[in-house]
């Protein structure tokens, strides 16, 4: 199928073609959603090289499982879930998944000392203020479309712990991304 023709098709149609073995159609899906998948894995904490490897593996795995995608949700969400789980599996395999509340390096903090205004929202920079586990939990739930329960299962953590990490992560992000709203929430939380 030609590039012009595939570019005009909806994700669900492309996925159906891919399920029938059309690799060109799947290539169009990769072109469309590659940045989202690569971005998510980077936001989860991977460096650019590792993120690209995981994203690539996720798309390959996605092609093998694309027949299972029925179009109930967005294809982007479906493939991002695959990538998120794959990244966690790789971290566990490499014994790099330390689910501690350790805060980022001092040099990372120094870059984040100045709160950003709403007009200069930079999610990627703000995420660096979170601890590794907070970052993973927030990224999985907001970027990877996983529910708290699914994130808890994927991370092998109790549900309550994941909820706490998400809450703490959100508070930090709120303070960075929407300072006024963040202050309000903090005040409310401490009253």
């Amino acid at each position: 199928m030609g590039a012009v023709k595939t570019a005009a098709l909806h994700d669900v149609e492309l996925a159906a073609l891919a399920a029938a073995g059309d690799r060109a159609a799947y290539g169009e899906l990769v072109r469309r959603h590659g940045p989202a998948v690569r971005g998510l894995v980077r936001r989860m904490g991977a460096d650019s090289s590792a993120a690209d490897d995981v994203a690539q593996d996720a798309f390959i795995l996605g092609f093998e499982q694309v027949a299972e995608f029925r179009g109930e949700g967005a294809f982007a969400g479906w493939i991002k879930r695959i990538a998120a789980r794959l990244y966690l599996r790789r971290m566990k395999k490499d014994a790099r998944l330390f689910l501690t509340d350790q805060t980022p390096d001092e040099e990372d903090h120094s870059a984040l000392d100045e709160p950003r205004t709403a007009s200069r929202m930079d999610l990627d920079t703000a995420l660096k203020a979170l601890s590794g586990v907070e970052r993973l939990c927030v990224s999985l739930c907001y970027g990877g479309d996983l529910s708290h329960s699914e994130a808890a299962e994927a991370l092998n953590l109790p549900l309550g712990t994941v909820k706490s990490h998400v809450k703490r992560g959100l508070d930090k992000l709120r303070a960075r991304l929407a300072p006024e709203a963040g202050l309000g929430a903090t005040r409310l939380g401490h009253v």
């Binding site: 971005g39 998510l40 798309f59």
Partner: peptide, 22 residues
């Protein structure tokens, strides 16, 4: 914000690598 994918200048090359691997 999470749904806003960052721009990757090498997106075409990435897609080409995936399809070549496929």
């Amino acid at each position: 914000l999470f749904n806003q994918a960052p721009a990757f200048p090498d997106n075409e090359a990435f897609a080409a690598r995936v399809t070549a691997r496929l």
